[in-house]
Design a protein around this nucleic acid. Structure first.
Lengths: 200, 200
DNA sequence: TAATCACCATGATCTAGATCATGTTCATGC
DNA sequence: GCATGAACATGATCTAGATCATGGTGATTA
């Protein structure tokens, strides 16, 4: 449905920015990160997006994009002009409900992320993060234990409110302790149960 | 509209919990905080809600409440059964769009909160928090500079990922520096410009 | 009017994780 | 093949803010 609009992006290309809101995007292939920036230039990675997920839901309200999406590898998206969605939605309440549900899901995830950012230690943050990625891949029909980290250590660190060095160190330690194996971007979860215990 | 369902709550009474999702709520008077808890018991205050704001939007997706809402003073809400909203929504697409917009707004606020939790110093957190409260009161037609903190220092601290002591100290210091005056729950912003500069 | 309890303020100390410093690995281009 | 630069790893040091400790204040109940 509505797949007539597509947009392909190279590695590290930007999808949208400060401009006025016209469309939502669904990731078709690849992956993206979204960031917002404070007035002093500091940036926060607010989320990672994989195929099937919506980008831009937080812009509906302001009618302008508050976040910037960047592709983490070469990726494609499907553009959904919001006006069109509204038109279709009038005849298909089911579509509106679907949109509502997606928004609600992202909201709920973000609340969990607040718990992560506010209350967890760095070990807990990493363990929780790895398991959340695992779940997302599993839901998508991929391996829950072996996957690629398309984002850099820096992106992970930023997203979790940590320093890059901390992420490096903890991943190394997790590997020493046999919880995972990791080589560059390729990671394999070896002791899911123990990782779960680490989440708190 | 749909105001036939109301529910009044005493100070510190709970609105909902772990139960299955049936309704959204609009705050009619007073204020609420919502929390989620980690398996180890740690709690995170995920938001504060004032009159006109929706509680429960993050439950639509899971069809069960993930967060608990507690009133911070004696408060009333208006219950909106979700089934009913869906029915009405079929004839009134405008209602669905309104809901979508509210959800999008909360999502966008939560992204900003991530920036707050992940990247800001304790001073920046407090200043940002006070100004965000200020804006919400102003939008509601109340004073942007003189208002009551219905939540405790502990709630603020938890919400911002700080220790209570830190919040106390910073509020005291803000007062020493003439940025605010504060006595118990009554606060007055004296140098809004300087507070804005502090936000980063 | 005293007792109890939640909330708040503030000083002293401690520590998780940031920052700094240095080296390595790996990809891309010439 | 070698140069350049980004991303990653890891040790040494430092610090913002947590934690610990103590006392005050104000509301509620007996």
């Amino acid at each position: 449905m509505a797949a007539e609009y597509t947009l392909s992006t190279d590695r590290h290309s930007r999808l949208n920015e400060q401009e006025s809101f016209k469309s939502l995007y669904i990731v078709r292939s690849g992956s993206f990160k979204t960031t917002i920036s404070a007035s002093n230039g500091r940036e926060q990675v607010t989320g990672f997006y994989f195929p099937g997920e919506f980008i831009g839901l937080d812009a509906i309200h302001h009618q302008s994009y508050r976040s910037t999406a960047k592709s983490l590898e070469s990726s494609t998206v499907c553009e959904l002009p919001y006006k069109m969605l509204q038109e279709i939605g009038k005849e298909m309440p089911q579509l509106q409900i679907q949109l509502l549900t997606r928004l609600s899901k992202e909201l709920s995830n973000d609340k969990s992320l607040m718990l992560l950012l506010g209350k967890k230690t760095s070990d807990e943050k990493l363990a929780t993060y790895l398991l959340s990625l695992s779940k997302r891949f599993k839901d998508r029909g991929f391996s829950a234990t072996d996957f690629q980290l398309s984002m850099s250590r820096g992106d992970i660190a930023n997203h979790l409110g940590l320093a890059v060095e901390t992420v490096s160190r903890i991943l190394s330690r997790f590997q020493e302790n046999g919880l995972i194996t990791i080589a560059g971007k390729v990671i394999s979860l070896k002791q899911v149960k123990n990782l779960e215990d680490l989440c708190g």
